[in-house]
Computed example of a mutant assay.
Amino acid sequence: MARPPRFDTSQLLDAAVRLAAESGPSGVTMSAVAAAAGAPSGSLYHRFAGRSALLAEVWLRTVEGFQEGYFEALESSNDPRTGGRAAARHIVEWSRAHPQEAALLLYGAHDFGRDGWSDEHLRRADEGNMRVRASVAALAGALGVHGSQGLERVSLAVIDLPLSLVRRHLRAGSTLPAHAEDLAEQCTDALLAGG
């Protein structure tokens, strides 16, 4: 019977996230991840076809992990404003609980080599993006908001505004203030109520 591998995929991706948070996507190389995980390079090549696949998995695992809680929060109530507030709060709470992953998301998919991703990785990324757009449109509809300006306001309320609050502190290297979740919620609610 074959012995189980010493390094699982999660351990290797965790090491890659740490490198991306510290040095950006350029710091995520096969050899750097192997060294950070204390694993032989072969362990990485056994799990990832190359650096492009590694970068795709680092990005997608992080985004998908974030989105899971985001959609849950957004759909947590029959009241659309309550769901919108919960989604804004989730962005701040998740970023506080996962500072390395949040720092990684300061970049975009293209910074993580999206142009070289496999069809499967592109499919996963596109499905996530489409689900975000559909959820924001559904929220706008539930709020009775119509037209591109209304949709823009809802997107600002439940995505851009809380992300801006997080981004400012992450880029400054400062801790999110204790009131950040409440502030994000209050500002989101004010925008959602404005229509």
Rank of each mutant, 00 (worst) to 15 (best):
A109S: 15
A88Q: 03
W94K: 05
S76E: 07
Q100V: 00
R85A: 14
P80V: 07
H90I: 01
D111L: 02
A87L: 04
A109L: 07
A109F: 03
H110E: 15
F112K: 10
I91S: 09
R114D: 05
V92Y: 05
L105D: 07
H90Y: 14
R114N: 05
I91T: 15
D115T: 08
R85G: 11
G108P: 06
N78K: 08
E72Q: 11
G83V: 02
Y107T: 13
Y107K: 12
A88K: 01
R114I: 00
Y107L: 11
G113T: 12
V92W: 07
R81S: 06
G108E: 14
R85C: 12
T82H: 06
A87T: 03
S77N: 06
S95C: 12
L106P: 07
L105T: 12
R96I: 04
A86I: 02
S95I: 09
R89K: 06
V92D: 05
A97F: 01
A73H: 04
H90V: 02
D115W: 02
L104G: 09
E75Q: 13
G108H: 10
H90E: 10
D111V: 04
V92R: 06
A102N: 09
A102S: 12
S77K: 03
R114P: 01
P99E: 04
S77H: 03
A73Q: 05
A73I: 04
L74V: 07
S95K: 08
H110Q: 13
R114C: 05
H98N: 15
G84S: 10
A86H: 06
P99R: 14
E72Y: 00
E72C: 02
A88G: 07
A86P: 03
R96N: 04
L106G: 11
E75I: 00
R96E: 03
L105N: 06
A86Q: 08
L104K: 12
G108Q: 13
H110I: 03
S76R: 02
A86K: 04
H90T: 04
